[in-house]
Amino acid sequence: MFDNRKIYRVCHKKQGLVTFNVTVKETNLNIQADSDLSKQAVRSILDHRQYIENHIACFPGFADSMTPLSSPGIAPKIISEMTQAAKTAGVGPMAAVAGAVAQSVGRDLLQWSANVLVENGGDIFIKSDTQTIFTIYAGSSPLSMKAGIKVARRAASFAMCTSSGTVGHSKSFGKADAVSVLADCCALADAAATSLGNEIQTPKDIERAIAIGKNMAGVQGIIIISGKQIGLWGALELIKL
């Protein structure tokens, strides 16, 4: 049996950066930075996990809602971003949790490193001074590991998040082999990938799902793989590997 996590972590490795893994409870991050920032990353994970755990203790519905929730009012940034991302994508707030954690930790680490990449279960926050090529792991699809996404260098941080109904343990109501979403906000990219993945039962659903995603404010690019079919839209370039 292949370790899917190891496969896609090798696929997005950037030259010149130091790579390290950090685990806190259920959170396991693969991080790339200008230097080893393991201690800073652990502290950041603990802080942001505590924000989420405290919020769930006060509002238990936050943990299991499958639909968007109303604004939490005054709340930690990670809670507000998860809530807004879920509202935009039409899913529950925990659909954005992996991306939100990656983003929150990545932002914290930018204090010590100009280049930061944080991957959390296939959801990636990145700030890099070079272009980035993402290899798409799509399980048993014949397009898996043969198609890549090239994103030009960006002045600001951005996110590429992937959801699958056939690979991994993420909850999905669809059967897409891979749905990847590009956005400035990692929480939004995560929630949108989950939402669009839910729309895919057969390859015939790709076009309709992309049409839905195009109308999600903040979504900048979409790639969907289902079996032998692939759909692409937005500010990214599909390349053959």
Rank of each mutant, 00 (worst) to 15 (best):
T132A: 10
Q131C: 13
Q40W: 05
T130Q: 15
E26W: 03
L46M: 02
I210N: 03
T162M: 13
I124G: 07
T135F: 02
K13Q: 13
G174T: 00
V219K: 00
S141D: 00
V101E: 11
A96W: 06
E199L: 15
I212T: 15
R9W: 02
Q229R: 14
W233F: 13
S128D: 13
S170P: 13
Q111Y: 01
I79D: 14
I7G: 00
S172H: 04
N28P: 02
D36G: 11
N28H: 05
G148D: 06
I7R: 12
C185L: 10
V24C: 07
N54P: 04
R153Q: 11
N4I: 11
K14W: 09
F158C: 05
P142T: 11
G139K: 09
F173I: 03
M160T: 06
G197S: 10
G174H: 11
I74T: 03
F2P: 08
S144P: 13
I136P: 05
L143Y: 14
V219T: 08
I136Y: 12
D184V: 02
N54L: 05
D47V: 15
K127N: 10
I79N: 12
A95R: 03
I212N: 08
L182V: 05
Y51W: 06
K6P: 03
K171W: 01
T83V: 10
K204F: 10
A75D: 05
D47W: 09
I212E: 11
T67F: 13
A114E: 11
A100H: 09
Q84M: 12
S38A: 10
L69Y: 09
D34C: 12
T67P: 10
L29Q: 07
A155D: 11
T83R: 06
